[in-house]
Simulated scan of single mutants.
Amino acid sequence: MEKKIADIKLELESADITNIDAILEQYRADNRSGVVKLIAKYDKEKEKLQKERERSYEMRRFEREYGKEYHAICGIDEVGRGPLSGPVVACAVILPTNEEILYLNDSKQVSEKKREELYDVIMEKAVAVGVGVVPPSVIDEINILQATYEAMRVAISKLQVKPDLLLNDAVTIPGVAVKQVPIIKGDAKSASIAAASIVAKVTRDRLMVEYDKIYPGYGFAHNKGYGSKEHIDMLQKIGPTPIHRHTFIKNFVEEE
Protein backbone atom coordinates (compact mmCIF):
# COMPACT_ATOMS: atom_id res chain seq x y z
CA MET A 1 0.00 0.00 0.00
CA GLU A 2 1.36 3.41 -1.03
CA LYS A 3 2.12 5.78 1.76
CA LYS A 4 -0.04 8.91 1.79
CA ILE A 5 1.62 12.05 0.41
CA ALA A 6 0.81 13.87 3.65
CA ASP A 7 2.73 11.18 5.58
CA ILE A 8 5.71 11.45 3.22
CA LYS A 9 5.67 15.22 3.66
CA LEU A 10 5.65 14.83 7.43
CA GLU A 11 8.51 12.31 7.25
CA LEU A 12 10.61 14.72 5.19
CA GLU A 13 9.79 17.69 7.41
CA SER A 14 10.87 15.69 10.46
CA ALA A 15 14.16 14.60 8.87
CA ASP A 16 17.53 16.32 9.31
CA ILE A 17 18.37 18.02 6.00
CA THR A 18 22.01 17.01 6.50
CA ASN A 19 21.03 13.32 6.45
CA ILE A 20 17.95 13.17 4.24
CA ASP A 21 19.32 11.35 1.19
CA ALA A 22 18.12 7.88 2.20
CA ILE A 23 14.53 9.09 2.60
CA LEU A 24 14.56 10.94 -0.73
CA GLU A 25 15.90 7.89 -2.58
CA GLN A 26 13.13 5.80 -1.08
CA TYR A 27 10.48 7.92 -2.85
CA ARG A 28 12.20 8.89 -6.11
CA ALA A 29 10.32 6.20 -8.05
CA ASP A 30 6.97 7.56 -6.85
CA ASN A 31 5.45 9.40 -9.83
CA ARG A 32 2.62 11.13 -7.97
CA SER A 33 2.91 14.86 -8.65
CA GLY A 34 2.78 15.73 -4.96
CA VAL A 35 5.70 13.44 -4.20
CA VAL A 36 7.67 14.68 -7.24
CA LYS A 37 7.26 18.25 -5.97
CA LEU A 38 8.38 17.27 -2.48
CA ILE A 39 11.48 15.54 -3.84
CA ALA A 40 12.31 18.59 -5.98
CA LYS A 41 11.86 20.90 -3.00
CA TYR A 42 14.25 18.95 -0.80
CA ASP A 43 16.76 18.47 -3.60
CA LYS A 44 16.86 22.27 -3.84
CA GLU A 45 17.30 22.51 -0.05
CA LYS A 46 20.19 20.04 -0.29
CA GLU A 47 21.78 22.14 -3.02
CA LYS A 48 21.47 25.29 -0.88
CA LEU A 49 23.01 23.42 2.05
CA GLN A 50 25.93 22.28 -0.09
CA LYS A 51 26.57 25.85 -1.24
CA GLU A 52 26.48 27.05 2.37
CA ARG A 53 28.95 24.34 3.35
CA GLU A 54 31.29 25.47 0.57
CA ARG A 55 30.96 29.11 1.70
CA SER A 56 31.50 28.07 5.31
CA TYR A 57 34.61 26.12 4.33
CA GLU A 58 36.00 29.23 2.63
CA MET A 59 35.17 31.27 5.77
CA ARG A 60 37.56 29.01 7.70
CA ARG A 61 40.46 29.64 5.31
CA PHE A 62 42.45 31.80 7.73
CA GLU A 63 41.78 29.40 10.59
CA ARG A 64 43.09 26.48 8.51
CA GLU A 65 46.11 28.44 7.29
CA TYR A 66 47.21 29.67 10.72
CA GLY A 67 46.06 26.49 12.44
CA LYS A 68 49.17 24.73 11.14
CA GLU A 69 51.22 26.81 13.59
CA TYR A 70 48.77 28.14 16.20
CA HIS A 71 46.31 26.20 18.34
CA ALA A 72 44.02 28.77 20.01
CA ILE A 73 42.99 31.13 17.22
CA CYS A 74 40.71 33.93 18.39
CA GLY A 75 38.48 36.13 16.26
CA ILE A 76 37.73 39.65 17.50
CA ASP A 77 35.17 42.24 16.42
CA GLU A 78 33.17 45.13 17.84
CA VAL A 79 29.82 46.85 17.37
CA GLY A 80 28.54 50.25 18.37
CA ARG A 81 31.17 52.70 17.22
CA GLY A 82 28.67 54.97 15.48
CA PRO A 83 25.59 55.31 17.75
CA LEU A 84 24.77 58.47 19.71
CA SER A 85 24.06 56.45 22.84
CA GLY A 86 24.93 53.19 24.53
CA PRO A 87 28.21 51.34 24.97
CA VAL A 88 30.70 50.00 22.47
CA VAL A 89 30.83 46.20 22.72
CA ALA A 90 33.62 43.87 21.61
CA CYS A 91 33.74 40.11 21.53
CA ALA A 92 36.54 37.55 21.30
CA VAL A 93 35.71 34.00 20.17
CA ILE A 94 37.79 30.84 19.87
CA LEU A 95 35.90 28.36 17.69
CA PRO A 96 36.40 24.59 17.73
CA THR A 97 38.56 23.29 14.90
CA ASN A 98 36.65 20.05 14.44
CA GLU A 99 33.04 21.24 14.32
CA GLU A 100 31.17 22.96 11.49
CA ILE A 101 29.04 26.01 12.33
CA LEU A 102 27.07 27.07 9.27
CA TYR A 103 25.73 30.52 8.34
CA LEU A 104 28.42 32.53 10.15
CA ASN A 105 28.84 35.90 8.46
CA ASP A 106 29.23 39.61 9.11
CA SER A 107 26.45 40.34 11.62
CA LYS A 108 25.09 43.09 9.35
CA GLN A 109 24.48 40.45 6.66
CA VAL A 110 22.52 38.16 8.99
CA SER A 111 18.87 38.67 9.97
CA GLU A 112 18.03 39.43 13.59
CA LYS A 113 16.32 36.05 13.98
CA LYS A 114 19.31 34.20 12.54
CA ARG A 115 21.72 36.20 14.71
CA GLU A 116 19.83 35.11 17.81
CA GLU A 117 19.95 31.47 16.67
CA LEU A 118 23.66 31.68 15.88
CA TYR A 119 24.38 33.39 19.20
CA ASP A 120 23.06 30.31 21.02
CA VAL A 121 25.03 27.95 18.77
CA ILE A 122 28.26 29.93 19.23
CA MET A 123 27.85 30.14 23.00
CA GLU A 124 27.24 26.39 23.14
CA LYS A 125 30.00 25.23 20.79
CA ALA A 126 32.78 27.79 21.13
CA VAL A 127 35.95 26.81 22.99
CA ALA A 128 35.87 30.23 24.69
CA VAL A 129 33.96 33.52 24.46
CA GLY A 130 34.86 36.86 26.04
CA VAL A 131 32.83 40.08 25.90
CA GLY A 132 34.00 43.61 26.67
CA VAL A 133 31.60 46.52 27.26
CA VAL A 134 32.81 50.12 27.52
CA PRO A 135 30.20 52.71 28.62
CA PRO A 136 29.47 56.14 27.09
CA SER A 137 31.25 57.98 29.92
CA VAL A 138 34.53 56.30 28.99
CA ILE A 139 33.91 56.85 25.27
CA ASP A 140 33.55 60.58 26.00
CA GLU A 141 36.70 60.53 28.11
CA ILE A 142 39.13 58.67 25.85
CA ASN A 143 37.38 58.81 22.40
CA ILE A 144 35.61 56.05 20.51
CA LEU A 145 38.71 54.49 18.93
CA GLN A 146 40.50 54.10 22.26
CA ALA A 147 37.27 52.88 23.86
CA THR A 148 36.95 50.26 21.12
CA TYR A 149 40.49 49.04 21.76
CA GLU A 150 39.73 48.88 25.49
CA ALA A 151 36.56 46.84 24.85
CA MET A 152 38.64 44.42 22.76
CA ARG A 153 41.30 44.11 25.47
CA VAL A 154 38.60 43.40 28.06
CA ALA A 155 37.02 40.78 25.79
CA ILE A 156 40.39 39.03 25.37
CA SER A 157 41.03 39.11 29.12
CA LYS A 158 37.72 37.33 29.78
CA LEU A 159 38.55 34.32 27.60
CA GLN A 160 38.88 31.14 29.67
CA VAL A 161 41.41 29.82 27.13
CA LYS A 162 44.44 31.99 26.38
CA PRO A 163 44.70 32.65 22.62
CA ASP A 164 48.03 32.39 20.79
CA LEU A 165 46.80 34.24 17.68
CA LEU A 166 44.26 37.03 17.16
CA LEU A 167 42.36 37.49 13.91
CA ASN A 168 41.07 41.08 13.99
CA ASP A 169 38.60 42.91 11.79
CA ALA A 170 40.98 45.41 10.14
CA VAL A 171 42.66 46.74 13.31
CA THR A 172 45.76 46.11 15.39
CA ILE A 173 44.97 46.40 19.09
CA PRO A 174 47.55 48.31 21.17
CA GLY A 175 48.76 46.83 24.43
CA VAL A 176 48.13 43.17 23.59
CA ALA A 177 51.04 40.73 23.83
CA VAL A 178 49.60 38.20 21.38
CA LYS A 179 50.38 37.96 17.67
CA GLN A 180 47.69 39.76 15.65
CA VAL A 181 46.54 39.44 12.06
CA PRO A 182 44.35 42.35 10.88
CA ILE A 183 42.02 41.28 8.06
CA ILE A 184 40.19 43.90 5.99
CA LYS A 185 36.45 43.09 6.07
CA GLY A 186 37.40 40.19 8.30
CA ASP A 187 33.85 39.67 9.57
CA ALA A 188 32.91 38.51 6.05
CA LYS A 189 36.09 36.46 5.50
CA SER A 190 36.82 34.69 8.78
CA ALA A 191 34.43 32.41 10.66
CA SER A 192 36.02 33.38 14.00
CA ILE A 193 35.64 37.10 13.39
CA ALA A 194 32.10 36.60 12.09
CA ALA A 195 31.20 34.69 15.25
CA ALA A 196 32.64 37.53 17.37
CA SER A 197 30.66 40.03 15.29
CA ILE A 198 27.41 38.17 15.91
CA VAL A 199 27.91 37.74 19.66
CA ALA A 200 28.90 41.41 20.04
CA LYS A 201 25.88 42.55 18.01
CA VAL A 202 23.37 40.41 19.89
CA THR A 203 24.86 41.43 23.25
CA ARG A 204 24.67 45.15 22.45
CA ASP A 205 21.20 44.93 20.92
CA ARG A 206 19.89 43.21 24.04
CA LEU A 207 21.43 45.93 26.20
CA MET A 208 19.74 48.64 24.13
CA VAL A 209 16.37 46.88 24.44
CA GLU A 210 16.79 47.01 28.23
CA TYR A 211 17.81 50.69 28.09
CA ASP A 212 14.63 51.38 26.11
CA LYS A 213 12.64 50.27 29.17
CA ILE A 214 14.58 52.63 31.42
CA TYR A 215 14.60 55.59 28.99
CA PRO A 216 11.45 55.25 26.85
CA GLY A 217 10.68 57.48 23.91
CA TYR A 218 14.06 57.49 22.17
CA GLY A 219 13.37 54.26 20.32
CA PHE A 220 16.45 52.49 21.67
CA ALA A 221 14.82 49.05 21.25
CA HIS A 222 14.76 49.39 17.46
CA ASN A 223 17.28 52.14 16.57
CA LYS A 224 19.85 50.70 19.01
CA GLY A 225 21.09 54.21 19.82
CA TYR A 226 21.79 55.26 16.25
CA GLY A 227 20.66 58.71 15.09
CA SER A 228 17.18 57.97 13.75
CA LYS A 229 14.70 60.86 13.33
CA GLU A 230 12.71 59.63 16.33
CA HIS A 231 15.85 59.52 18.44
CA ILE A 232 17.09 62.99 17.45
CA ASP A 233 13.62 64.55 17.82
CA MET A 234 13.36 63.18 21.36
CA LEU A 235 16.91 64.26 22.13
CA GLN A 236 16.09 67.82 21.08
CA LYS A 237 12.76 67.76 22.90
CA ILE A 238 13.78 66.53 26.35
CA GLY A 239 17.58 66.26 26.17
CA PRO A 240 20.11 63.48 26.68
CA THR A 241 19.95 60.49 29.01
CA PRO A 242 22.84 59.15 31.13
CA ILE A 243 23.67 56.68 28.33
CA HIS A 244 24.16 59.34 25.64
CA ARG A 245 27.64 60.07 24.33
CA HIS A 246 28.06 63.79 24.89
CA THR A 247 30.87 64.04 22.34
CA PHE A 248 28.54 62.51 19.73
CA ILE A 249 25.41 64.62 20.31
CA LYS A 250 26.90 68.13 20.37
CA ASN A 251 25.66 68.78 16.82
CA PHE A 252 22.08 68.05 17.89
CA VAL A 253 21.75 69.62 21.33
CA GLU A 254 23.35 72.45 23.24
CA GLU A 255 24.65 71.30 26.60
CA GLU A 256 25.85 73.39 29.48
Results as ranks from 00 to 15, higher is better:
233 D>G: 03
132 G>P: 08
168 N>D: 12
22 A>M: 00
39 I>H: 00
256 E>W: 14
194 A>L: 14
188 A>L: 07
119 Y>P: 05
240 P>V: 04
181 V>G: 06
114 K>A: 01
2 E>W: 13
100 E>W: 07
218 Y>Q: 09
208 M>K: 09
90 A>Q: 10
37 K>N: 08
128 A>L: 07
255 E>W: 14
71 H>S: 15
232 I>C: 09
97 T>N: 14
208 M>T: 06
44 K>G: 01
153 R>C: 01
109 Q>S: 14
172 T>P: 11
98 N>I: 07
71 H>N: 15
35 V>T: 01
100 E>T: 10
242 P>L: 14
13 E>Y: 05
238 I>Q: 15
244 H>G: 03
24 L>P: 02
244 H>V: 04
238 I>A: 12
242 P>K: 13
177 A>N: 15
174 P>H: 04
147 A>I: 09
18 T>M: 04
42 Y>K: 10
168 N>C: 15
32 R>V: 05
179 K>E: 14
166 L>I: 12
116 E>L: 00
241 T>H: 10
197 S>T: 02
132 G>L: 09
110 V>T: 15
105 N>V: 13
28 R>N: 08
197 S>E: 03
158 K>S: 00
183 I>C: 12
182 P>Y: 14
179 K>I: 08
32 R>A: 00
110 V>G: 11
253 V>F: 03
165 L>Y: 09
247 T>W: 12
115 R>Y: 02
171 V>I: 13
207 L>V: 03
14 S>T: 08
126 A>C: 06
15 A>Q: 04
89 V>A: 00
47 E>I: 04
7 D>H: 13
219 G>F: 04
84 L>K: 08
81 R>E: 09
74 C>I: 11
